[in-house]
Design a protein around this nucleic acid. Structure first.
Lengths: 139, 139
DNA sequence: ATTTGTGCAAATCGTTTGCATCTGA
DNA sequence: TCAGATGCAAACGATTTGCACAAAT
């Protein structure tokens, strides 16, 4: 009954977010929220879905990731680079980023904080403060 | 004589950086370093050059920006988004970024600092810590 | 029945590359 | 002379879009 109740929960979650629980969204939500926190790109999630036998187009993966982000189910990570990452951990935290292989890690909670956030320029308000710690393999 | 001496200085600067002072590089350096600190994209610099009557291809602008960055004349800004920005201020500082119109401002020096930089994951070393304060127009 | 979502392929955007030609030391 | 630079156009990778078709309420 575990799967069934999990499915019910996911369905409920989507509904509460104002999204119809379609086949594709249910499946992608399953992959995203099924086990611990994850950092994914559209490409990665698409491949994973295909590998899992879930037929879904890349365009739909993009749509879904954006819709989930808008509804607060995911956090869009504005790391640099060409690719966009999405984080299933929507709470406030920062990241290590390795340009070499494009991997992302969380900075352990509380290990690093910003001191003295400045006020935004005239007529602007702050929406977020993102810290990216760039790393590379030693030696 | 002001222009002449400035030109000499630029030429010298390029030479010291190990770059031949070609027509195009001299011209682009003039635009970049001629007046105060700037944040530019390849596109912006290219248009500016054309507007100034400097004939240069976009590919060369990209080449030049990258070469300047490698030699420490510019700082590549890994702000998010699709575009890459280059900063003529190579000293350590952080940025405000407005996604709405893609503008960048410096965070006033010393207004904000990182407390407790964590150690990098096993086998990795930190190359930089970048802070981006995202802002949007009020109301 | 009506609204909403999906898939596909083509289109877009910023950036890079291959290669023939030119230029500065 | 000749390594190094440049320009052009084609190639690229990630993302978006237009539109016909399918699925949810």
């Amino acid at each position: 009954m575990v799967e069934a109740s999990q499915e019910t929960t996911t369905k409920e979650r989507l509904r509460q977010a104002g999204l119809r629980p379609t086949r594709q969204r249910m499946a992608l939500a399953g992959l995203l929220f099924g086990a611990g926190h994850r950092h994914v790109t559209a490409e990665m999630l698409h491949e994973e879905a295909l590998a899992a036998g879930i037929s879904v187009s890349l365009a739909t993966v993009y749509n879904t990731l954006h819709q989930f982000s808008e509804r607060g189910l995911l956090r869009r990570l504005p790391i640099d680079g060409s690719k966009t990452y999405f984080d299933t951990n929507v709470s406030h935290h920062h990241h290590f980023y390795c340009e070499r292989d494009g991997t992302l890690f969380d900075v352990p909670g509380g290990a690093m904080e910003i001191c003295g956030v400045p006020q935004a320029p005239e007529g602007m308000e702050i929406t977020s403060v993102d810290v990216v710690v760039r790393v590379r393999p030693k030696r």
